[in-house]
């Protein structure tokens, strides 16, 4: 297990280096001079050159990559071309909205998906299964912006249970959680639908395995066999989906952030792209890649904890 973890860590480091090189050079080859962009078309060549020197753009490619990477490691993400403030500061405020939102949504999605997925598998073919399959089909199909608006108009406007939008900050944790609840729920619904379906089909596969019959022959009740033998074996595909969903939720919530006026990473990166604020794009993308690779690493470790057969491979 230790060797497995070390190997996965090494692979994590290598993936990060590869990703950073790819991101840096893709941004490099995008046409357009950031310095000229910032100063506008009427600026003199001298002014542009001066800014280029100040921004370090006149140095060689390798030197700039090294500068960027060593900065990132120390938490220095550079200065935004557009706003002239450190990117780190801009990101920090946003991460504390997007990260809790993603985690909240994932928690809700898991809390909804596990029980209904297990129920549907255990009562295969019954009305409960039929209801879960129909409901999750609907959950996947409903566009989340529409569902968000419905939720806002009913729960926030008519009954005033939740705020319709905005984010009060973490000074009052309760208020912050209240502000995140509706968007998290809206984000969680389609994810929960997918997860519940994966849980159901994975469990059904496991329930038909020979070792389930062995468990019954030992004297386990149907429920006991499900709890002690089926669940853990059915977890691998479910974990894969959870890992993918977290990565998606972290930056893929732009529409929901816009609807609920949440200052998250998604809307920030969207603005940065339209303003050609490449240093922000570069750094935020790198941050997201880091998060995704880290989640993949954690999922890999969980795989190995769940299934001893995976510990030998790496």
């Amino acid at each position: 297990m230790l060797i497995f973890t070390l190997k996965r860590l090494l692979s994590l480091a290598l993936s990060l280096i590869a990703a950073s090189v790819a991101i840096f050079f893709v941004v490099e080859i995008i046409p357009g001079d950031p310095a000229r962009l910032m100063l506008g078309i009427n600026a003199t060549q001298d002014a542009v050159d001066a800014l280029r020197t100040q921004m370090g753009l006149d140095q060689g490619v390798m030197a700039r990559y090294w500068l960027w990477i060593s900065g990132l490691v120390q938490g220095d993400f550079g200065i935004s071309y557009t706003y002239r403030v450190p990117v780190a500061e801009m990101v920090q405020g946003r991460v504390w909205v997007s990260l809790p939102l993603a985690m909240y949504a994932l928690l809700l999605s898991t809390l909804i998906a596990f029980p209904i997925g297990i129920l549907a598998a255990a009562k295969r073919g019954s009305w409960a299964d039929w209801l879960v399959m129909g409901g999750t089909q609907l959950g996947v199909a409903i566009p989340n912006f529409w569902f968000a608006m419905i939720m806002v108009s009913i729960l926030a406007i008519k009954y005033q249970l939740f705020s319709a939008g905005g984010f009060p900050g973490w000074d009052d944790p309760l208020a912050a959680m209240k502000a995140l609840t509706l968007p998290a729920f809206v984000l969680a619904l389609p994810q929960a639908s997918i997860l519940a379906r994966v849980m159901r089909s994975s469990l059904l596969d496991t329930l038909s395995e020979d070792f389930m019959r062995t468990a019954r022959a030992k004297g386990r009740t149907a429920r006991g066999a499900m709890v002690h033998h089926a669940l853990r074996n059915a977890m691998i595909p479910v974990l894969t989906i959870i890992g993918l969903q977290f990565s998606f939720l972290l930056a893929g919530a732009i529409i929901i952030e816009k609807i609920f006026f949440l200052p998250g990473l998604g809307s920030m990166i969207f603005t940065a792209i339209t303003q050609r604020d490449l240093i922000v794009v570069e750094s935020v993308v790198m941050l997201l890649v880091f998060a995704v690779i880290l989640v993949t690493f954690l999922v890999d470790i969980t795989y190995a904890l769940v299934d001893p057969r995976l510990r030998r491979r790496a």
Binding site: E209, D210, F211, R213, T214, A215, R216, A217, K218, G219, R220, T221, H229, R232, N233, V306, D307, P308, R309
Partner: peptide, 25 residues
Amino acid sequence: PSLCNIRGKDIGMVFQEPMTALNPV
């Protein structure tokens, strides 16, 4: 419930496929 009490205690069972009859985890 009575059957569950008998299975495994008074009646043991061995299956054809040893490769899949055990829980892999």
